[in-house]
Design a protein around this nucleic acid. Sequence first.
DNA 1: CTCCCGATAT
DNA 2: ATATCAGGAG
Length: 219
Amino acid sequence: MLKDTACRIFSVLFNQYIREDTNLNFLEFDNPFQILIMTILSAQTTDRTVNSVKGRLFEAYPDPSSMADADISKIEEIIRPTGFYRAKSKNIRGASEMLVREYEGIVPDSMEELVKLPGVGRKTANIVLNHAYGIDAGIAVDTHVKRVSFRLGMTDNTSPDKIERDLTSLFPKEAWGKINFLLISHGRSVCDAKKPACDKCCIKELCRYYRENNSPDKE
DNA sequence: CTCCCGATAT
DNA sequence: ATATCAGGAG
């Protein structure tokens, strides 16, 4: 895809969705530790589900040291609705232990250090860096970013690492955090996985998927 | 590649 | 019943 096309898509999506971050369907957090834990919990689960366990979880374990001393089974009970609760419990306690032992209880602000934490990959690290510290180290490629960017034709790859490379070279660094938010917003509201609502799409004229599936000579 | 694992929409 | 949801580890 041409950078000019990418820029136009960004512009249209920005005007469409920029007001929507007052909308409730995103992770809630009050500090770097919370966004780290909430993002680990968000794997394969909706943000709403993760938000629903936030109160109990941080009331019981408000900081890395209390979480590091937590009883695994108690964490499991609290976060069960988010799915993968055994692995996630182990990960968030393990990450908390590492924060206490190696980072003085402070969530690190570099990709290199963040991905050393159990349960933290590039996607989660990118979210933490951007949300907690305002750092654009890369672009978080989740299931929405993956699907929407592929359909639009911003990438021909399917692996998150390659998609991130394609997207970061397509957009200026200042836009990285925004394009993540915009692709997710669009993926949720219009370009959903099962049946994308191309008729309601504000960027269909710029979309590869639309061209290939709604072209005049289809069928 | 498989496994982890519950909630929700269709 | 099945697919999918702000993935990561083995």
